Amino acid sequence: MSNYIISGIQQIGIGVSDVQAAFKWYRQNFGMSVPVFEEAAEAALMLPYTGGEPRSRHAILAINMQGGGGFEIWQYTSRTPEAPKFTPQLGDLGINIAKMKSKDVEATYELFNKRGLNILSELSKDPDGNPTFFVKDPWDNIFQIVPSDSWFQKRKTALPGGPNGAIIGVTDFEKAKSLYSDILGYDTVVYEKEGTFDDLKGIPGGDKKVKRTLLRHSKPRAGAFSPLLGASEVELVIALERKPKKIFENRFWGDLGYIHLCYDINGMADLKETCESKGFPFTVDSANSFDMGEAAGHFTYVEDPDAALIEFVETHKVPIMKKISWYLNLQKRDPKKPLPRFMLKAMGLSEVKD
């Protein structure tokens, strides 16, 4: 990587039909209980992906104080969000599945079974020998539970931490790696396998032959939020027995499903130069600081070679303790220096408890 800094996966965007119901389900079952911001406004800058018109929406960015990324829970309010006109299968182009990290995958599996959640697969092992399983939320989004030893706080709960990666359908590993490895820093191949796999059999398309490669970053992430966001991974999957479909074909960004994978970064100008040099120009650029009411920053988007949307956010202002109007201006800090742990922990004081 060049002179820009990637702190980690900031959030995965999830388009839903009921933002409040989704927030409740995600905080109760995934521990995504701290709202960093909540805003009802017009999305005026995403015109290439919203039919050329500004669209009204209601969004909540929620995080898990055990660590990991957040969820940007996103609902259209000016139109009815559309579902795909087909059932997406493993290897279809775009973000297929969010990975959620767990301290104890077996304990999380038992808890979800007791709660009667829609578990799609039995507890199994991935090609690296790690325990894993898949679960579906009430809005048809699929999540993979994976083990992790990267934690901000370990709570006495079998609930998972925040998202630490995604399974993404692609058509060509080498083209995809020019973004995910060369720019995003996932430079370590954990495995690269071809065939049918027991751990995938419970998900749509998981019984078919695929190629899959799991990528991680060899260097620890740096920057203000790196202790909270932690380590992450991406798994790229190629469908071998059928022609994959684009999950968001003829739909808008913000419609139902995984709308983007977002990284917290510093050094947007340098990142822009790097992305352009490798053939990934910014398709959306907020240019100056956007304001989300309680948070502010500079955001941009690129498309991977198969049009999956990757967002970059350079955070300028973030609420630490909203009750006493404690907001942090990150533009005045050393970009490589992590925030003190007490500041990051203070974000948890706005946690919603059911």
Rank of each mutant, 00 (worst) to 15 (best):
L339S: 04
S150G: 07
L256I: 15
T80V: 12
Q89K: 15
H316G: 12
R242P: 12
E122L: 10
F282W: 03
D140N: 15
F312I: 02
F71W: 13
I97M: 03
D198V: 07
E314G: 07
V318C: 00
H58D: 07
E174K: 13
G52A: 03
D334K: 09
E42Q: 07
D291K: 10
S350G: 13
V302K: 04
V16R: 05
P220Y: 09
F86E: 12
S178N: 12
N130G: 05
P204W: 10
K322L: 08
L236S: 09
E241D: 15
W253L: 06
W25P: 15
I168N: 07
Y191H: 10
H58S: 11
V146C: 12
W151S: 03
R55S: 01
F312N: 04
G68A: 12
I320F: 04
Y180H: 06
K209Q: 13
K272N: 10
I203V: 15
G293T: 08
V146R: 02
L179P: 09
I183R: 07
G129A: 08
D264T: 01
D92V: 01
L344K: 03
T80H: 07
D207Y: 10
K246C: 00
D264A: 14
E53N: 11
R212M: 15
F252M: 08
I167N: 02
G205N: 11
A308D: 01
F134K: 01
V318M: 13
H217L: 03
E314K: 06
E38D: 11
T188M: 08
W253V: 00
D104Q: 02
I183F: 08
D172P: 07
G195N: 09
L236R: 07
Y109V: 12
D182Y: 11
S277P: 03
K209L: 05
K175A: 13
L229S: 05
L344I: 14
P160A: 11
L90P: 09
I238C: 08
Q66N: 02
K345V: 04
L330F: 02
V16A: 06
P48A: 00
A83E: 14
D172R: 09
R79V: 03
D264Q: 13
E174Q: 13
I203F: 11
G13N: 12
T50Q: 01
K24N: 15
T274Y: 02
Q153H: 05
D182V: 10
F112P: 01
L330I: 04
P244K: 10
V313N: 12
F37G: 01
E235N: 07
L344W: 03
N3Q: 15
T132E: 06
P147H: 02
I5E: 04
M321N: 14
